[in-house]
Amino acid sequence: MIATAAEHRGAARSARRRRTLREAAVFVALAVPNVALIAWFTYRPLVLNVYYSTLDWTLGSATARAVGLDNYTQFFSSGEAGHVFLTTAWFTVSTVALSMGLGLLVALGLNRRIRGAGLAQATVFSPFVLSGVGVGLAWQYIFDPTVGALGAVIRAFGGTSPQWFNDETLSLVMVVLVYVWKNLGYAAVIYLAGLQAIPADILEAAAVDGAGPRRKFFSVTLPLLSPTTFFLLVTSTLSSLQAFDLIRAMTPLGRGTTTLIYDAYLRAFGGYNQAGYSAMISTVLFVLLVVLTLVQLVVVERRVHYR
């Protein structure tokens, strides 16, 4: 009897061991190819880009000269860095703030039981899934001061169309407006999901306690939306810092719209052919993305109220 019980325990252990080995084999079979692809196509280019940033390398040349940190020194000691960082900050802050603020207002409007709410949601979200190049080319025609639709409307009222493409400030404003229009639906849909996840009994309890619509929004709804706001802040910031296609389509020369990522493109492919210098700017952008994300995760998340 004792020997039989021991045999059963041994058999059970062997079965568990075999099951564990099978599960480990399945995990390795499924995970290793994906990890290998990510390592080869994501982390390998990242490491190579950091290496290329230490080279004086003309795009297309078979040789390159190691210069250490000279590219970084040249970038940060010139006036170019301040202008590029200022343009990047202005673009990012403006697009994130406007997209999230207007997205919340649109979500509040859509969070009502009205006829055609589904169609309205689809209409608001549809620009987000459109091609950035297609959107940029369409709006480039609209903003054209000579043949554009916006210029025609302004002239119909006796005005003169602004020179959107020649004025650096107006060029940046133009790109910001189009970027916000394209990404507004994303913020609106995410905020709408957050609003619909708020328990109705909490809002009813606030109303019973005498809270008016304004007090209920700022004291109940907005705090409960803080996880949604935090998520949108992180994703929208990363997206804005990497915005490229819209800027490229609307302002090919980068006049007034030279953000970090677009400056990296211009340095490599815009006539400079400075592949090493372009890699350096890309590395700076990567470090900036990591730092901003860590700051948001460590500092901003403390103010998030998870229910």
Rank of each mutant, 00 (worst) to 15 (best):
V133E: 02
R112S: 10
Y141F: 15
L104A: 00
F125Y: 15
A138M: 14
G116M: 08
I114M: 15
V106F: 03
L119W: 07
Q140A: 05
R112V: 08
V124L: 07
A117F: 05
S131A: 07
G116N: 03
L130N: 06
A138I: 07
L119F: 15
G109Q: 00
I114W: 13
G132S: 09
G132N: 09
G132D: 09
P127S: 05
G118N: 13
N111W: 11
F143D: 03
S131P: 02
F143R: 08
A107T: 01
G116C: 00
D144L: 05
A107H: 00
W139L: 03
L119K: 06
N111S: 13
V129D: 08
L137D: 00
G136P: 04
Y141I: 13
L102K: 00
Q121P: 04
G109Y: 00
P145Y: 00
T146R: 14
L102F: 12
L108Q: 05
D144Y: 11
P145K: 12
L102D: 01
G136M: 00
L104H: 00
L104F: 01
V129Q: 08
A122V: 06
A122M: 10
Y141T: 12
P127D: 06
S126M: 15
G101N: 10
G101A: 10
N111V: 04
P145R: 10
L110H: 06
G132R: 00
Q140N: 13
P127I: 02
I142R: 03
L130F: 11
G109H: 05
P145S: 07
L119A: 14
R112D: 01
G132P: 07
L102P: 09
L137K: 07
V106A: 02
F128K: 01
N111I: 09
A138S: 14
G118A: 12
Q140E: 12
G136W: 08
V124K: 02
G132W: 10
A122I: 01
A120W: 04
S126L: 15
A122Q: 04
A138H: 02
T123K: 05
F128R: 03
N111M: 08
P127W: 09
L119M: 12
R113F: 13
G101P: 11
V133L: 15
G101T: 13
L137H: 09
P127K: 04
V129R: 01
L105T: 10
V129A: 13
N111T: 08
A120I: 05
Q121A: 09
V129I: 15
V133W: 07
R112L: 09
N111G: 11
L137R: 07
N111Q: 07
R112W: 03
T123F: 12
A138V: 15
A122S: 15
L102G: 10
R113V: 11
T146A: 15
L105W: 10
L108M: 14
A138Y: 03
